[in-house]
Structure formats: structure tokens, C-alpha cells
Amino acid sequence: MNPNLLKQLAIVVKQGSLSRACEQLYITQPTLTRSIQQLEMKVGAPVLVRTRYGVQPTEIGARLAQIGERILAETEQGEEVIRQFHSGYHNEFVIGIDPLWEFATVAHTTAYFMQEKHYVFHFRTGSAAAQIELLQNGELDFLLAPAHLSVKQGTLDRQLLFRDRSGVFVGKKSALRGASKVVSHETLEKQNWIVAGANAGFLDRPSELIGLKAASMAFTGSIRSVLHLLNTSDVLVRLPARLALMTGEVDMDQMIQVSGPQGPRRDIALWSKVDNLERPECMKVHELIRGFMQQLEESTSTFDLSL
């Protein structure tokens, strides 16, 4: 089967319109129609149906469109590899990072890794719970994530390189902002709490402070919404304190002292597969990332946190 037919079908399904697909493909509608007809002759059944909302795939059409999507992705990746080769890069490494780490360290990360001229770095943001599986399955080369993840570590190497601790932050409109005294559990119970990092490795829920009261909202996979709420409302949230303060989006007077023990540790580790570290290129990049994290650890303020 001609893979171009599957690629064209995938674009039609994604666009939901033959005319819009033609615009993306830079071909005429009669040409695209003939391609779809060729595919339907091969299948022996329709792959598209017309509806009042445009064209939609049949069951077999949807399955073939998925294959076309993969062919498109592989083709684009192949073209990028060729561009990397002509630009003098040796290899590409995929590095998973936590959303808060990405937001807090983007300037440092860009300045550091742009200096390396031998490798291409693909940073992939997502929850640690999901990305640790990608690392184990070989879809990531390295992962910068919480050091204390509930995961079998037999095939994984973990190096704790950046110290942090959980803290309680209040929105700029909260009456507790700038509180000079320890805030009691009774006061905390009356506040509007949200959860950040649900299923992301930072499982800091308010329950340890306020008992059974439920948080009104939870956010996973994005830190921007949480930081926006801290800037515009009176919500309370637990976050890795050092990283949160590094973003520059929250102020020191938004971190309050609460009764009870200190917040749990939220250190960041460099995770990798043990087998990968036997490859010379992986070992070089591992040392490169390690150097970056150590440099960040030594040059970044601890904000008077007990680390």
C-alpha cells in the first residue's frame, strides 16, 4: 500500500474537511478525491462519510488514519534527524522534566544547554508518575523528577542533586499573607485550599494540616494556573518551596509558617536507566545534566529554608 494515501487520509480526518486538507497538502481537491478513492478500492469499503459537520472516518477509516498519523510523525522525525546531521549534531536525547522545574529553571536550562554543540535536547514536560513509566519503557533517556517516587528502582539509577522542601503558600489576596506568627490548624481549616501536582510526584495535600476538609480544586500537569491563582486570589496550596520561590511569581511573604512538623522533603533527582549508563554517549550527557543540576544547587538561594 502506498503510505502517502494513509498520510493524506490522516490529514483529512484531522482537518475534518477535504478542502482544508487540500490547503495543508498543497494539492487540488480532485487529486485528493482520487487518492481517497484509490484507498477505498484497496479496502473495498468507504473510509470517509460526509456529515453536516464535514467528513468523518468510518471504523476502518479511523484505524487507517491512526497508521497514517504514525507515518506522518516518523516522516517528520526523519526529516529532523537529517537536519540535525547536517547541522553537526551527534545525537538527540529526550529529557523528562516536572512542570514546576521547567517553569522555575527555564532561563538557567536554556543558557546551559545551548552551549552544548554536539547534542540536541528534547525536553518533555509532564507529571513524574507518567514520565517514570516512559523512562522505564525507553521513551525517555533521562528524567528530572522528585527523588521520592513510589516506583521499583531495580533497573533505575537515581541521584539526588537538588534539595527542596514543601511549604504552604497563600494567595496575594489572603488575609494570612505576611503572617508573622505560626498559623494554627483551626485557622487553616477555614481557608480555600487547592491541590497542585496531583499524581505528579508532589502529592502535598492539605489533609495533613486540616484533617478531612476537601480541597476545592486540583491541578495536574500545569503550574501556570496555580501561580496565577496565587497572584490573584486567596487560595492556599502546598508546593516545593525553593522551586516555587525561584519562579519569581510568588513572594516570600506568601509562604506562611504552620503548626506541626516541617513540610516533607521535595528533592529533585536525576533518574536514568542503569543499562543506558553503559553507553558512552549517554554517560557523557548524564554527566552534563548532573553538572547542570549541581551548578543550580550551588548557585540558587535556599531562601532560608531548612534543607
Rank of each mutant, 00 (worst) to 15 (best):
M1C: 05
N2T: 09
P3W: 04
P3K: 02
N4S: 11
K7W: 08
L9E: 07
S19G: 07
A21P: 11
A21S: 07
I27P: 06
T33E: 03
Q38N: 15
Q38A: 13
M41S: 11
A45K: 00
G54L: 01
P57C: 09
I60M: 03
G68F: 03
D98F: 05
L100C: 10
A104L: 07
T105Y: 08
F113L: 02
Y119R: 05
V120C: 00
L135V: 11
L143D: 07
S150G: 01
Q153L: 01
L156H: 02
L156Y: 08
S166M: 14
A175Y: 03
L176P: 10
H185Y: 10
H185Q: 15
E186D: 12
K190T: 14
K190I: 11
N199H: 15
D204Y: 14
D204K: 07
K213S: 06
A218Q: 14
A218S: 13
G221I: 10
G221E: 10
G221Q: 10
H228D: 13
V235K: 05
P240W: 00
R242F: 09
A244K: 10
L245Q: 05
V250R: 02
M252N: 00
Q257G: 01
Q257A: 09
D267K: 11
A269L: 04
K273P: 06
L288C: 10
I289L: 15
R290M: 12
E297G: 05
E298S: 14
S301E: 10
T302K: 02
